[in-house]
Write a protein that binds this DNA or RNA. Structure first.
Lengths: 344, 344
DNA sequence: GGTTAGCACTCGACAATAAAGAGTGCTAAC
DNA sequence: GTTAGCACTCTTTATTGTCGAGTGCTAACC
């Protein structure tokens, strides 16, 4: 696609103006607002060409031009200048994110909230996937006579603790033994693969000395595995859509809301995305309901493993430069915060 | 307020009809639909009386009548019959709630989701307050050479575990000592009161042998306390408002959404409510933004302590009988599920 | 005296109509 | 290649008129 300097300039002006105003932009407005030394009529001709190339659309005969998804793509790829976040915003992000690094969940919730506030769009953050994660070791520690704590540690460094009430008293040596047996059997195995095993049977068959302790502990272990593998999705700023002209139509607002509220589907969609800051514009989406939305996501890493997603959804008309910068900066901060952490 | 049998009957019919249809109900409709042996004209006279008593309103001269908050209150207190949940719904609630009792957070999230689905309204659930909770004991347990797990147990039975990476290796005896010192010092103290203490200083001054371990552990302890005291609010079914005629006006929808999105304020409001199933109707609320909403909340108990709230918000026109039954049944199930649990 | 029928009146909802405004597309002149 | 001018298109907004539902009042009825 070869575009003259002038066409690019006009396109850029249209995209920029439309992103700001949400109104179709006409030739006259353009020639008045941006002093580019050519008349409205000339601009009309150029616009006509751009429309033929599929970069602009016409809501109806007598309306101004609106950028197509293709135009946004061109804008994002070549025309858009890098947007530098104002220092205050950087500071807010740093303050909010770096503060409590030990709490992944809470930090992610905070991150999505922040993302929504700064972009004025609906934002979300997903807890890390643990699909590729393997068991490092299991330990069962004493708490009191009839309670123990089950500690599960994965290779990626996620540590989970669960308190288990036993139906009988136990001998500390038994716990020691149980820890060893389980660790020995399952160390290095994928968490997902462990879910399908019949672990109680396994363990009891192995070591008769454990008695019935395994029966109390193993179900909790299985539940812990399930929980670790479970992904949560935090969504913030749903109310923001009321400020966006695109959703002043009740039906579109409803559709958007429903789409975002279907967490399971949204989750799936996010899981399928590549790493890095990714911008997907309207029709580029596979999913029918997303065809008039744009999505900007990024992947954050915990202990060097890139496993979680976060991002922003909005209408195709969005401030791609600002939003992607916020997403990027926030992700960088998260990565920094989660770099040295072990456990949640 | 003395009302004739007939007036009550008419009022009940109006409230019932309006709750179902969301349309002002006229005398003619009423006399046709409900065969109560009197003519529309008579009903008009009665309606006029009821309006004078402040039980009905008139959106405009030629519209039907609409119940006032006062009428809803009367309806809820005296006219409303107990609504028996259909067996399927009971079963759904039981299945969903009883399944994973060990996970308070997840269960509450599920509960609010369920509440929203069954009532078709926006629902929420709050994690338990721990304001009156006292520390039972603290234990620091070994994990590996440089990591320990800090276990905090409260009198209400809430157990929290945090993994802490130390900057140095430690002697198991030190952990034992630290546990004892901290437990001895702070056992039985309100969690809230502990937050204001200078615990590092306290502990180090007490026992020199601990060295710098306290410096690593105590901040995590403080953070754990903060987290325990923190209340989370899960909100579900925001999209439901799009199906409610009251919110087909964009502005009201927006206002509602903003109100519900202000978690901190909502939290405060909920904390101020009494126990049991409480219905507050429109103008009965203190808060300006709630004056055209009704709120049905209940309190659930963990280990016998009533500490958490959950409920439903919607327009004053809501199916009070059904909704309050769902809230009640769900709460009963939660109470049952949380009765025997220790820890989350 | 309570109840009912009848009728004038009110008001919102909806559709049809008209006018205004913005923008295009084409043509002819520069 | 660029520009001005003009007819044409289509949306937006305001206006009007009509319809229907519902009230409130009065007078008759049982």
């Amino acid at each position: 696609m070869d575009l003259s300097e002038r066409k690019l300039k006009i396109l850029q002006a249209i995209v920029g103006d439309y992103i700001r105003s949400a109104e179709p932009v006409g030739s006259r407005t353009l020639s008045k607002k941006y002093d580019m030394g050519i008349s409205a009529a000339t601009i009309r001709n150029e616009m006509s060409d751009l429309e033929e190339m599929g970069l602009l659309t016409h809501p109806h005969t007598s309306a101004g031009r609106v950028p197509s998804d293709k135009a946004y793509r061109l804008y994002v790829n070549s025309l858009m200048r890098k947007y530098e976040l104002p220092e205050e915003e950087k500071k807010v992000i740093e303050d909010q994110i770096s503060s409590n690094i030990t709490e992944l969940d809470r930090t992610l919730r905070k991150a999505s909230h922040l993302l929504s506030e700064l972009t004025k769009l609906t934002a979300f953050a997903m807890t890390p996937t643990q699909e590729d994660n393997r068991l490092k070791y299991v330990r069962v520690l004493p708490v009191d006579q009839k309670s123990v704590v089950l500690m599960t540690v994965t290779e990626s460094g996620k540590v989970t603790n669960t308190v288990i009430k036993l139906r009988q008293e136990y001998d500390p040596a038994q716990l020691e033994l149980l820890s060893k047996v389980m660790t020995h059997n399952y160390k290095g195995k994928l968490l997902t693969s462990l879910l399908t095993l019949d672990i109680i049977d396994d363990v009891e068959k192995d070591v008769a000395a454990l008695g019935r302790i395994a029966e109390d502990v193993v179900p909790s272990f299985m539940r812990t595995l399930e929980n670790i593998l479970n992904v949560d999705l935090y969504i913030e700023g749903l109310d923001k859509i009321f400020y966006i002209p695109e959703y002043s139509d009740m039906n579109r607002a409803k559709t958007f809301m429903e789409m975002v509220s279907h967490k399971a589907e949204l989750e799936n969609m996010l899981l399928n995305r590549d790493s890095g800051v990714i911008i997907t514009i309207g029709g580029e989406h596979e999913e029918e309901q997303m065809k008039n939305c744009s999505l900007i996501t990024a992947t954050y890493c915990v202990n060097g493993q890139c496993v979680g997603k976060l991002g922003v959804v909005g209408p195709t008309r969005m401030k791609y430069d600002e939003v992607s910068s916020v997403v990027e900066y926030l992700t960088d901060n998260l990565n920094e915060a989660f770099k040295m952490t072990e456990g949640e």
